[in-house]
Design a protein around this nucleic acid. Structure first.
Length: 636
RNA sequence: GCCGAUGUAGCUCAGCUGGCAGAGCAGCUGAUUUGUAAUCAGCAGGUCAUCCGUUCGAAUCGGAUCAUCGGCUCCA
């Protein structure tokens, strides 16, 4: 018997007897890998573990720890779920069941709608199937044979899928009595799945097209260890605990009302937070050479025709009439900013002109997508429009990148960058787009920032760089965006006077950093779980007298704190100190000052820090110094 | 917008097969004067989302509307 050699990922080779499978290779590398192996990659193609290797094959063994491995694992779990559903509800028709970023789903066409109780039964059945430890068998057949099989099974969606497959040969996977059209690969047997959970059921259109039939989609997730599933479920719980919609109400920051769906109401404490945020934003923009403007919310239709919004953005806009004339409520700030630019003649010496605007825009979002402060119908963009000469593009983009970096770091966020290119409904020529896209790319390369490219995801007037920031539990949020625009200056006939006294066309750059103030506040709430750093806290200090006779002392402290613009509240409620402390902790106030007979005699306060406890007695003046330092430095 | 679930006091929730609307927390009043995450007692609080219907009788059953939540991008 001759041996074969296969080449591993690191270039090393191992010897195997002829006829050896991927699984044999995994075992040979290490018994542990053999145990953990899910599937493998042979010469770049994903294969099942029972794939027979040949001499000089390049192989890689996949385990759950790789994203490819996870995907296969999730996909196999979706097949098990489909089998369970078919066993319980034979009338259900199978659509598709892929792995997704965070788990898997399977779409079914079935008359009844799945209930939470059904989920429990399906999970039960899945456990049974896993216990049966059925092998996943790969079957290769001709397309015609496959058609016959699924015709007999009356699986019309599978037949439809078959129609779209070009290859003559297709693969089927079978475990037990369950057979599915599938490219594979799969885990060797159902017993491989160690921990799973069905998460939710939702409607979804066949092939994502609303003209097609609505199917029922069941979502789930699986892991190769019970503890990892528990971790995942804990993270879901943690996200729920941080939900800004609940915290926003509990901490009296904002509210939502039926009378204005998608239009958030900011309460006094929410406004404190908002004003701090906006003031900080203004300071940083002034430092970076921006001026600030404010443009009207309602503007004449003619402006929106000219800007292209009428043609490209109408579905998302609100309209009104004034004196029989059509007006639109602005969905973006740029046309207003352009009118300001056009008010005067500009010299090349003025450029770049950086015009910032905290602009309130309204957009008609579908009712089903509204979500707290994250997805609303009116929001304040921290917008800016930079008018510049073409040779200033690079520097300006880099300037915006720097400012963005500074702002995000202040809140403790890390981030990643994505570049979006020309979309289908774009205005302007390919050359202009190419030039604009290249400028953005060059700035990123020069700044040594890694980025992902999203083809066709740009705005209709230009390509863009998006900043996605990452919160403390690992979720990412799209906030900042830089969009280069050669088209608006053209449409509005913008110009500046160059050195030689001739008119020249400026380039425009649209950008936001926080994105939407409302949304950013939502992100801050979730990131800090409502426990804001001192500089952002609506109430920074809570004054807690031990007994009623110490209230006057508290009022004096209050006066002192006010002198330094420290935001404090005095708790005058007739309660034991434990209850007052509890209340302040639940309100997530960063500092509590507690004072009774001992403190009043010596001008002291007992300091308690949120989440940490008693820090001991110090002079009030000392406390003020310390907290002012913390506020000034924006300590996290 | 579409599919599904949900909607009872400010909040969290109970209320069975139709028969007088309930609790805890929060609020108010009083007692207590408290030493680092809940003192005790009393009071008040409701168009059971809205409308229409079935019924002797509807929070409960049916329909419509509104809102909220989850999903509708991931393609064998």
């Amino acid at each position: 018997m001759t041996d074969i050699k296969v080449i591993l990922l690191d270039g090393s080779k191992i010897e195997l007897s002829k006829g050896a499978t991927l699984f044999d290779a995994a075992c040979k590398i290490s018994p542990r890998l053999g145990k953990e192996a899910i599937a493998g990659i042979v010469n770049g193609a994903k294969k099942d573990l029972d794939y027979v290797l040949e001499d000089d094959d390049h192989i890689e063994i996949l385990t759950f720890s790789s994203s490819d491995g996870k995907e296969i694992y999730h996909h196999s779990t979706s097949h098990i779920m489909a089998q369970a559903v078919k066993e319980l509800f034979p009338e259900a028709k199978l659509a598709i069941g892929p792995a997704i970023k965070d788990g898997f789903y399977y779409d079914f066409d079935i008359e009844r709608s799945f209930t939470p109780e059904d989920m429990v039964i399906i999970e039960q059945k899945m456990k049974e199937i896993i216990e049966r430890d059925l092998p996943f068998k790969k079957i290769e057949v001709n397309k015609e044979e496959a058609k016959k099989i699924f015709k007999d099974k009356e699986e019309k969606y599978k037949l439809e899928l078959l129609e779209d497959i070009q290859d003559e040969k297709v693969t089927l996977y079978q475990q037990g009595d369950f057979m599915d059209l599938c490219r594979g690969p799969h885990v060797p047997s159902t017993g491989k799945i160690k921990a799973f959970k069905l998460l939710s059921v939702a409607g979804a259109y066949w092939r994502g097209n609303e003209k097609n039939k609505m199917l029922q989609r069941i979502y789930g997730i699986s892991f190769d260890k019970k503890s990892e599933l528990e971790n995942y479920l804990r993270l879901v719980e943690e996200a729920k605990r941080r939900d800004h919609r609940k915290l926003g109400r509990d901490l009296e920051l904002f509210s939502m009302h039926d009378e204005g769906v998608g239009f958030p109401f900011f309460h006094p404490k929410g406004m404190v937070l908002r004003n701090i945020l906006e003031n900080y934003w203004r300071e940083e923009h002034q430092k970076s050479g921006y001026t600030e403007v404010k443009t009207p919310i309602i503007l004449n239709k003619s402006l929106w025709m000219k800007s292209g919004h009428w043609d490209h953005y109408k579905e998302n806009m609100y309209f009104t009439k004034i004196d029989e004339e059509d007006y639109a409520i602005k969905p973006m700030n740029c046309p207003g900013g352009i009118l300001i630019y056009k008010c005067s003649l500009h010299s090349y010496r003025e450029l770049p002109l950086r015009m910032a605007e905290l602009g309130l825009v309204h957009r008609h979002e579908l009712s089903g997508v509204l979500h707290g402060l994250f997805r609303v119908r009116c929001f304040t963009q921290d917008d800016a429009h930079i008018f510049m000469t073409p040779d200033q593009i690079g520097e300006e983009i880099k300037g915006v990148i720097d400012l963005t970096d500074r702002l995000y770091k202040t809140f403790g966020f890390s981030y990643h960058v994505e570049l979006s290119t020309k979309p289908e409904n774009a205005m302007g020529s390919d050359e202009i787009w190419e030039k604009a896209t290249k400028s953005l790319e060059e700035a990123l390369i020069e700044k040594e920032i890694k980025y992902i490219v999203n083809e066709g995801e740009g705005a209709f007037y230009g390509p863009k760089i998006d900043f996605h920031l990452k919160d403390c539990i690992g979720r990412s949020w799209q906030c900042g965006t830089i969009q280069l625009d050669f088209i608006m200056p053209e449409k509005f006939d913008l110009f500046y006077i160059n050195k030689t006294g001739d008119k020249e066309r400026p380039v425009m750059l649209h950008r936001t950093i926080l994105g939407s103030i409302e949304r950013f506040i939502g992100i801050l709430i979730e990131n800090y779980a409502g426990a804001f750093p001192v500089w952002l806290s609506p109430v920074q200090v809570k004054l807690l007298p031990i007994a009623d006779r110490h209230i006057d002392y508290g009022k004096n402290i209050m006066k002192e704190l006010k002198k330094h613009s420290i935001r404090a509240e005095l708790d005058e409620i007739n309660e034991k100190i434990g209850a007052k402390v509890r209340k302040a902790e639940l309100e997530k106030v960063p500092y509590m000052l507690i004072f009774g007979d001992k403190e009043t005699e010596e001008d002291l306060v007992s300091v308690r820090k949120r989440g940490e406890g008693d820090l001991g007695k110090i002079k009030l003046t000392r406390f003020i110094e310390d907290i002012l330092k913390e506020i000034k430095e924006k300590t996290l």
